[in-house]
Design a protein around this nucleic acid. Structure first.
Length: 549
RNA sequence: GGCCCCGUGGUCAAGCGGUUAAGACAUCGCCCUUUCACGGCGGAGACAUGGGUUCGAUUCCCGUCGGGGUCACCA
């Protein structure tokens, strides 16, 4: 009896690998085209790091006229969640990321290199496992979890490297006859890869991002097929990325230490190894300590957080792209109106160490992104956000014609207003423009420097009766504010006042503040003249009278 | 602990043998016909550390310290 008998016993149904090699031929793509994939586990929401990977993958495939694949890695059945695939697809779609191939929902997919869900590829993995078995490059291991635990304890006690390797690999050299007997006896087993590596020897590897790295060869006999018949990540990675003809494996940093193993697997299987690009993880500043951003501790680790906050996905994408290639920023400044896809992304310019996620900076990017939107776009996006998260804002925006005017204040000109960083800011910025909100709120406010009630009344009354005319153009209005100030004994110019502050009780700015607060309840607002034009005569009169009647 | 990677201002980062060590965000000040936002100008603020190599090291080598990753029938 030989390896062949063993292999046939274990996987009697498996097809020869030539079947799959023919079924998934080399892709016919232009020179330099990159075939990349995003390969998440459907274990819950999409992590910011996943979005980061996706942006990079999508960009690279676009730039090289390559292919971007969504492969679902669901070989760990314990961790599955309902609708995991749909969640991923939808979340990424929100950020403008779509795939050329792969799963499109829980059951459907597109592309000729599928199935794109690992649980549906069991027969493929088994065929390749059988192939290794036949050559004696893999073997069944009968060790129980308890046995393995015991082994590890011994290794730790002896301060040895832990793992299933060398002399510790108990079933590595079990004669085929005995293995067959055990299997026929119904003993439980898994399939392990028989490593030919030697820890003493070093291998050199070039990572697209990290550069040259040396490490010891792998000598662990890792499991390739688990007790449930599904492959482990390592084995699935080798088989899938080969068969899907992936050219560049872009994945997170945490995998670099597996490179020796993966390379050995590719070689044993007779595959050409892909290029690897290991991206640094996104970090979080935790009281001065740097750590990987985490699902459990950090709400901003979930991509959904940005939607809830109302940060446009375009802004998140730009921010992430900037972390990926720091020259993005200067490109953006030089190309203010170009689409993000025109930026020439270079994967080898990526930073090797993880950047701390900077929400403040993101908000700044967002502010700039929003400042470029037309009022129609602001209206549409804010409304869409509000429909999910803020009923009161929906109510306000329902008055579309008026809202458009409000949102158009200081927008669309050379120096657009930049006070909105996220849709959740909007309500606070515009609420006073809405009549019922303005009059029905119990918000407290103060008039700043001029606080005497009678003085305030006097100012507003005089303004309304003598100076206010909605027809005035901006300059006239402005001059009138100065006249008003003068008539009341205030300085008509701020500069004038500053030269001799004792001479006046205040200046035109102080008077304007009184008007501003009366009309908006705020000391800080956009241009008052524009606000008044939107508010209209009646509203203004009502707001003024409220203060002195 | 073993192995691997990394260490430029608060953050993201250019620079990679000779630079007044860029830029962005944040911060502070001034200016911008009346606030705020924007914009402009300016300030403060960095090469972890000790040894080498070199005429010369932020840049190259070694040690130290610090940070991160990884050591599963999870991915």
């Amino acid at each position: 009896m030989d390896y062949k008998d063993l292999a046939d016993l274990i996987f009697p149904e498996a097809k020869p690998i030539s079947y799959y090699e023919e079924k998934y031929p080399e892709r016919n793509l232009p020179e330099g085209a990159m075939v990349v994939r995003f390969a998440p586990s459907p274990t819950g929401y999409v992590h910011i790091g996943g979005l980061y990977q996706s942006i990079i993958g999508r960009t690279l495939a676009n730039q090289t006229k390559g292919v971007f694949i969504l492969r679902i890695e669901d070989t760990d059945q314990k961790r599955q969640i309902e609708n995991g695939v749909v969640q991923i697809v939808d979340a990424l779609k929100d950020f403008n990321i779509e795939f050329d191939e792969g799963m499109i929902n829980e059951t459907e997919e597109k592309g000729n290199y599928g199935p794109y869900k690992q649980s549906a590829r069991k027969d493929i993995y088994q065929a390749y496992a059988k192939y290794l078995l036949e050559q004696g490059k893999a073997y069944p291991c009968f060790a129980t979890p308890e046995e393995l635990e015991e082994m590890r304890a011994k290794q730790e006690a002896a301060k040895l490297r832990t793992g299933y390797y060398g002399v510790w690999a108990k079933y590595r050299n079990l004669p085929v006859e005995e293995a067959i007997k055990k299997i026929k006896n119904g003993e439980k087993y898994i399939i392990r890869f028989k490593s030919m590596g030697n820890e003493e020897r070093k291998i050199k590897h070039h990572d697209v991002i990290k550069g040259n790295i040396d490490f010891p060869e792998n000598d662990q006999d890792i499991v390739i097929i688990k007790g449930d018949g599904l492959p482990t990540y390592h084995f699935a990675h080798a088989v899938d990325d080969h068969l899907m003809r992936v050219t560049h494996v872009i994945r997170s940093d945490e995998w670099v230490s597996s490179i020796p193993l993966h390379l050995e697997l590719f070689r044993a299987l007779g595959f050409k190894a892909p290029k690897y690009a290991h991206t640094a993880p996104i970090m979080k500043d935790d009281n001065g300590k740097k750590r990987k951003i985490s699902k459990r501790k950090d709400p901003e680790a979930a991509v959904s957080y940005y939607h809830e906050q109302g940060i446009p996905s375009e802004a998140v994408n730009e921010y992430l792209l900037n972390i990926a290639n720091s020259n993005f920023e200067s490109w953006r400044r030089a190309n203010k109106d170009k689409d993000i896809s025109e930026f020439k992304f270079e994967i080898n310019k990526m930073s090797v160490s993880g950047a701390i996620f900077d929400l403040i900076k993101l908000l700044d990017v967002s502010k700039n992104v929003i400042s470029k939107y037309s009022k129609e776009k602001v209206y549409a996006d804010a409304l869409e956000w509000a429909k999910r998260y803020d009923e009161e804002l929906v109510e306000m925006l329902n008055n579309k014609e008026y809202s458009l005017k409000v949102l158009g204040i200081e927008r669309g000109n050379q120096k657009p207003r930049k006070d909105i960083a996220k849709w959740s800011d909007i309500k606070h910025c515009i609420i006073y423009m809405y009549e019922d909100k303005f009059f029905n709120s119990d918000e407290t406010y103060d008039f700043g420097k001029i606080s005497d009630k009678d003085e305030i009344k006097k100012i507003l009354k005089l303004y309304k009766e003598k100076y206010f005319n909605i027809e005035d153009d901006k300059q006239t209005w402005f001059d009138k504010m100065k006249d008003l100030s003068e008539e009341l004994g205030y300085a008509r110019e701020v500069k004038e006042y500053k030269q001799d502050p004792e001479k006046w009780p205040g200046h035109v700015g102080d008077i304007s503040t009184v008007l501003r607060v009366a009309l908006t309840k705020r000391q800080n607002t956009p241009d008052l003249y524009e606000i008044m034009q939107v508010l209209g005569k009646e509203s203004i009169e009502k707001r003024l009278e409220k203060e002195y009647k």
